[in-house]
Amino acid sequence: MYEGVVQDLIDELGRLPGVGPKSAQRIAFHLLQADPADVHRLASILNEVKAKVKFCSVCFNVSEEETCRICRDPRREQSVLCVVEEYKDVVAIERTREFRGRYHVLGGAISPIDGIGPDQLRIRELVQRLNDPGITEVILATDPNLEGEATATYLTRQLSPLGLKVTRLASGLPVGGDLEYADEVTLGRAFAGRRAAE
């Protein structure tokens, strides 16, 4: 343990996701040895982010304006809505350059163990958005894990009565992977989602 403010810094850094005690200690000592101008710039950016960045009033993506750039873009496909768990998922999908529709960020996934139920997510806002007669398809792009699957199943049940086409991202084997290293669930999904050979 270190004295006073150094230990406080290590403790605060350790609260960041993915940063364990050793990493927090390394980052803290890096900051102590860094040029003061660099540390002030980092502190300034952190304060600026907290002051300027908010959530889009339409899709709940991060934005510096009332609505994000994707919601403001008139070239985006208005009839398809992709539902994701977190705003970082929007970035991942955008990098593919395959999707040209709009998004809805839930703010997490259903996880009873963590005390997160449907009421803690932006599902009510999603259903309100689907009152727009222009939307014809909802793509559920939740993570392929237990929580993501539970969320997708719940959403499918909620959205099916609305008469919309509800789809789920395909899942299965990664390109460049070996069958012998695939787990049973992934391999099972690859079989279930097979398509005609081209």
Rank of each mutant, 00 (worst) to 15 (best):
Y2H: 15
E3P: 09
V6M: 13
Q7H: 04
D8S: 13
D11W: 05
R15H: 01
L16C: 04
G18M: 00
V19P: 00
K22G: 04
K22I: 02
Q25L: 07
Q25A: 03
I27Q: 03
A28V: 01
L31D: 00
L32M: 13
L32R: 00
L32H: 08
L32V: 06
A34Y: 08
P36Y: 01
P36E: 07
D38R: 07
H40V: 11
H40L: 12
R41L: 14
L42S: 05
I45N: 08
I45Y: 07
I45S: 14
L46G: 08
L46Q: 05
N47W: 00
N47I: 05
V49L: 15
K52R: 15
K52C: 13
V53H: 09
K54F: 00
F55M: 04
F55Q: 12
F55Y: 08
F55P: 01
S57K: 08
S57Y: 00
S57Q: 12
S57P: 02
V58F: 01
C59R: 03
C59V: 01
C59E: 10
E64Q: 12
E66W: 00
E66H: 01
T67W: 03
T67P: 04
C68F: 06
R72V: 02
R72F: 11
P74N: 03
R75Q: 05
E77W: 01
S79M: 00
V80C: 02
E85A: 15
E85L: 03
E85H: 03
E85W: 05
E86C: 02
K88M: 14
K88N: 14
V90G: 04
V90H: 07
V91F: 14
A92D: 14
A92W: 10
I93S: 11
R95S: 12
R95T: 04
E98K: 09
E98D: 14
Y103W: 09
H104E: 12
G107K: 07
G108C: 10
G108T: 09
S111Q: 05
I113D: 04
G117H: 02
P118R: 02
D119P: 00
D119F: 00
L121T: 05
L121N: 01
L121F: 01
I123K: 02
L126K: 08
V127Q: 06
V127E: 09
N131H: 01
P133F: 00
P133L: 01
P133G: 03
T136A: 11
T136N: 11
I139C: 09
L140Y: 09
L140T: 12
T142M: 10
N145E: 12
N145T: 11
G148N: 11
E149W: 01
E149R: 03
E149L: 02
A150L: 05
T151I: 04
T151Y: 06
A152S: 15
A152T: 10
T153W: 05
T156H: 09
S160R: 15
P161Q: 09
G163F: 11
G163M: 10
L164V: 06
L164W: 10
K165E: 15
K165I: 07
V166K: 08
T167Q: 06
T167M: 11
A170N: 07
P174E: 15
P174D: 15
V175E: 13
G176S: 13
G177N: 14
G177M: 15
Y181G: 13
A182I: 11
D183N: 15
E184W: 03
T186Y: 10
L187K: 10
R189M: 11
A192H: 09
G193H: 12
R194N: 08
R194V: 10
R195N: 12
A196H: 07
E198P: 13
